[in-house]
Every structure is written in structure tokens, then in C-alpha cells.
């Protein structure tokens, strides 16, 4: 049973003007089988939370802990975190020219699984996973994310999610920029991953619409660098109706929104 525990996490970002604190004490525990929606206004620190957990070098963890099954994730390099079972589906997947998608996927799968997947099974596995996400097989020979549309990039993030089968997946605004069809296809991909085992999902989103496809067990409102309120799915309905005004109206959040 995988558990991701985030305790009193403080994170600063390094900018040209110096260091600026973005996360101001985040507490959150995600257990296997649970889907947590993190919702919040722009600039509230949602993406920072995801990048800090994944270990992006731009972010400094100034205090707090992140444990995956009791192991301190913050002591690990970026790739060690991924191999330990963390996955971040990025809001803006990076283009890597000259590296084919198929080479990339196989290299990643080899690293995460600890051994190279048998070629015959692998080809079939990738083909099926691509077909489930309505990805044209020709993409396998294209450079990683290069020249992909926003929707194509997101489909490929979910493709990686399915192939790498992490213990805990963080989906950073995977829904943003998707049309209705793509949103449905991508959501189905996430749901297949959820059903594939005892996995935890942190679903970061600005909008409620993806929650119609992926049902959360918990909804957290993120504002001012911390979780401002937690509840069940009904909290999403409340946000749908009222927006974030209640949260960004808070004095300490005003400067960040």
C-alpha cells in the first residue's frame, strides 16, 4: 500500500530577484486507492507543489518532509524519485529534439522497471497503450514532444503514466488546453491507471470539468501556498458555483494571486 505523506512543506523558488517563498506549510497524505483533487487559483502554488515533489532544481525545499512509503523523497535525485514510484505528468512537457519517442519510452521503462523489457512484448505493449489513447503509431518515431500539439503532449504524458505504472501519480493541469474529445481520452487513460492497482493520484487542476471524468475522493482548495480547505467531492461543486473569491480574498493570499 503506497502512501505519499507531505508534512509542513515549505518551498522557495529561485528567481533573478532572489529567493521567494511559494509553499508555506503544505500537509497532505495520499494513500493508495485515493484520488485527491488539488484545486486553486492561478499562482496559488499548485504547480510548485508538483515540481518540488518531483525535484525540479529551480525549487528549494526550505523545510518539511515528503515521504513515499516512509522513505524521504527529498533525499533522492530526480531520477531516483521516479524509480521509487513517483510520476509527474507535466503541464508543459519538454521537447527533446533528436530523441525518438520509442527510444525514450524504452529507456524510461528500462530504468523504472530495473531491466529492459523484452522487445517483442514491449512493442505490443506500447502499440496497445498508444491505441487506447488514440495516438497515431507514427508518433513513436518522432522526437519526444517536438512539434506536438498541446493535446498530443498530454496524451503522451498519460501514455508514459500507463507504461511506467508509478505508485503515486501527480497530474499537473493535465486537463488544461484539451478539447472535449481529448479530455475524455486522457481521463479514460487516468482511470485505467487507477484501476490497474493500488495507486494514488494527485490531480491538480484549475477547473472542475475534469472531475466529471475522474472522480476524486478528496478535494483540497489550494490558496496562498497551502491547503486552505479540504473536503469531499461536494467541495468541487461549491467551487464550481462560487469560484475562488472566498480564498483569494484572504489578506495573505492577495499578493500572490
Amino acid at each position: 500500500m503506497a502512501t505519499l505523506e507531505i508534512k509542513d512543506l515549505h518551498v522557495s523558488v529561485n528567481t533573478d530577484e532572489g529567493s521567494k517563498e511559494i509553499l508555506k506549510g503544505v500537509d497532505l497524505t495520499i494513500k493508495a486507492g485515493e484520488t485527491h483533487a488539488i484545486m486553486g487559483p492561478n499562482g496559488s502554488g499548485k504547480s510548485t507543489l508538483s515540481y518540488a515533489i518531483a525535484g525540479h532544481p529551480k525549487y528549494d525545499v526550505t523545510s518539511g518532509t515528503v515521504l513515499l512509503d516512509g522513505e524521504n523523497v527529498l533525499d533522492m535525485t530526480v531520477d531516483e524519485r521516479a524509480r521509487a514510484g513517483l510520476f509527474l505528468a507535466m503541464q508543459y512537457p519538454v521537447e527533446v529534439p533528436g530523441v525518438s519517442m520509442s527510444n525514450f519510452l524504452r529507456t524510461a521503462a528500462t530504468a523504472v522497471r530495473g531491466e529492459a523489457p523484452k522487445l517483442r512484448h514491449w512493442v505490443k505493449e506500447v502499440k496497445e497503450a498508444m491505441s487506447e489513447l488514440d495516438i497515431d503509431p507514427a508518433f513513436a518515431e518522432r522526437s519526444v514532444n517536438e512539434g506536438f500539439s498541446g493535446g498530443e503532449k498530454k496524451r503522451h504524458e498519460i501514455l508514459q503514466l500507463g507504461l511506467l505504472k508509478p505508485k503515486v501519480a501527480i497530474l499537473d493541469e493535465t486537463d488544461s488546453g484539451l478539447d472535449v474529445d481529448a479530455l475524455r481520452v486522457v481521463s479514460e487513460g487516468v482511470n485505467r491507471y487507477k484501476q490497474s492497482g493500488d495507486v494514488g493520484v494527485m490531480l491538480i487542476t484549475h477547473y472542475t470539468r475534469i472531475l466529471k471524468y475522474i472522480s476524486p475522493d478528496f478535494v483540497h482548495v489550494f490558496a496562498g501556498g497551502r491547503i486552505a480547505e479540504s473536503g469531499g467531492p461536494e467541495l468541487a461543486d461549491q467551487l464550481e458555483a462560487e469560484g475562488y473569491v472566498k480564498y483569494i480574498g484572504k489578506p495573505e493570499a492577495a499578493g500572490i494571486a
Binding site: 530526480v78 531520477d79 512537457p93 530523441v99 511506467l164
Partner: peptide, 27 residues
């Protein structure tokens, strides 16, 4: 560094990720 981060975030060790990027550059 963003390319490196992306590849590492998929479990690929840093030295291997660097090589992938350089090889990709010359591809």
C-alpha cells in the same frame, strides 16, 4: 536543464539522460 529534468523525471539516470540529449542534438 529542462530536458535533463524531464528525462530524469521518467527515471532515466542523469548521465544517461545527458547522453540522450547530446546524441539527439547530433541526430
Amino acid at each position: 536543464d529542462e530536458q535533463l529534468f524531464y528525462l530524469q523525471a521518467r527515471g532515466i539516470p542523469e548521465d544517461q539522460a545527458r547522453r540522450l540529449v547530446v546524441r539527439g542534438f547530433f541526430h
